[in-house]
Design a protein around this nucleic acid. Sequence first.
DNA 1: TTGAAAGCGCTAACAA
DNA 2: TTGTTAGCGCTTTCAA
Lengths: 351, 351
Amino acid sequence: MKEIARLADVSLGTVSNVLSGLSTVREPLRQRVLEAVQALDYQPNQLARGLRRDKTNIIGMIISDISNPFFPAVVKGAEDTAFKNGYRLFLCNSDNDFAKEETYLHELQTYLPSGLIIMTSNINGSPALADAYRKAGSAVVYVDRLPPLWTGDTVTSMNEQGAYDATKYLIDLGHRRLGMITGSSTRTNSDERVQGFRRALREAKITISPEYVQEGYFEKQSGYANATTLLKLLPRPTAIFAANDLMAFGALTAIRDMGLRCPEDVSVIGFDNLDLAEIVTPALTSVDQSGYQLGAVAAQLIADRIRGDKEPKHTHVLPTALKLRASVAPALIDFETTVKKARGKPAKRSR
Amino acid sequence: MKEIARLADVSLGTVSNVLSGLSTVREPLRQRVLEAVQALDYQPNQLARGLRRDKTNIIGMIISDISNPFFPAVVKGAEDTAFKNGYRLFLCNSDNDFAKEETYLHELQTYLPSGLIIMTSNINGSPALADAYRKAGSAVVYVDRLPPLWTGDTVTSMNEQGAYDATKYLIDLGHRRLGMITGSSTRTNSDERVQGFRRALREAKITISPEYVQEGYFEKQSGYANATTLLKLLPRPTAIFAANDLMAFGALTAIRDMGLRCPEDVSVIGFDNLDLAEIVTPALTSVDQSGYQLGAVAAQLIADRIRGDKEPKHTHVLPTALKLRASVAPALIDFETTVKKARGKPAKRSR
DNA sequence: TTGAAAGCGCTAACAA
DNA sequence: TTGTTAGCGCTTTCAA
């Protein structure tokens, strides 16, 4: 910057004013400065600028597991929107390791980012740290998974409704013995999906015993293992709703490995509508949520906050949509259940 | 930091010395400082530290497309290794947009990172910028895709050999009419895979006309489109080698959509050995490359460089391995070709 | 409208 | 062994 000042024969302050675009610098001077900037291929030192301004153009984004194929879309949405608004997205992958998440959270803050987008790996842990960001003047948004204690801005999908829609679809096709593979119970999005599943059952007056809802952890192997457990239950479920696509993929493999067929013997629905849902065989029916939108809305929220939005709290909930594919078929006429009903009803009446 | 100095009743310099761990501070003082650090939950301002030290603990990583499912493994490998060495990985996604890559490259540099790991989106563009990093004292490694003009450290997989192995495997199974879907020609890794393919053909004295090698761009749709083109050729290829798994997935769909069967009518091999290669139907035979290792080696290279490694140039080339799955079958006895040979040979002799 | 100068939080050279 | 101080590159008063 000194060099520029020398080359353009102005003071440091003038160079700064030109670069900040803010001030009232006379045109000839401005030109000289800009030429010097060009000539020297100057880039302002963001470290010094940030130190002085008490704020950088960084938006930090913490994600819990970059391997989960749902996340890239979220990152892309956040990235695009942040970039357009002049911010740079710095991604930190916590690898589902909460200690790592804390380290990143602590350290990232000392880079004085303008904002923080966080898909936490532990909904019980971070709000205190995130609050420190807010106190320091950074905008914070939780995305996808919300710690109950968090009182600030959030962006999520309609998890409950999406799960409800998927379950209702199965019920409408005649399925009565439904199984579900949930995500980890430390994730609110999983809980909401379970609630949607249960609401649909309740409305249809279907009761299932607890072992028909198995807890997984959002990964393929977990879908495989839990589907295997579900399919060994008697009576066997005719349909499985998995809380995400990865687990649904695992379920498809489990079904095949047990000598069963999807959808003839067991229907499967996932959640996320990953690109791959179309590729697997059979193509997977899935609840679509827009990861891109999730990220884009979060980044926009931060940009707005920085520009002075003072609303007490934004709570964005984005719509989902059921994508119908080949992994679901109508339930076969269910002899066993029919017989039981026939036996059961008189018994009920006789009370 | 001032507060700490006050609380521990020492000077700023002493606090700094304790925090840097370097100096000879008497134990009682050291304790007082550390207690104060605890009490105030102090985190050093990395902006100020970086500005002063002329270097931060950031390793920047630029990837061209976070949606490509091969990349997360690379990122994870880099992340783990960087973190263990005390560096923080900041990821920038250029979205295959070279202008964006340039912007990130320019701006990231002014954060004075210790290192830069780059999977470029354009092998012709960035070495000049990357050289600026080296001049500024940051270690730079190119991963996966290497600009020909780059003279520094690199980490890649054995693309040529992997492709050779895959092709030879097909040839050994009797395939003679082979098709290939390449990646974009601006990527060196794609070129190397084409070379491996051609070497195997050459060694087996198989010649194919140019239209049996179609140029794709590493995405699923591109695999679909190019496979469709290949399968319309006469004689139809009995096997297709795709330069990555995503394109191979597209090819599988194309085969099905044309009413053909894999592997009975057409065998398919991909490259990358994504997790999903096991999930698709039929399970995809693929050349495995370790993304995790690619990233880990790159990050280690940077850590070593920062610690003073002065070797002129490191060129790591990691092994690949062919993973056999259901998408390949032996070639059927090939009547058409046999007839041609029978006709051709006498003709040749008569010359 | 422009220039001079203080200071952001930290490190490192030097003095005590 | 500890304290003092200059200064990293920039922004932002304030004065000219």
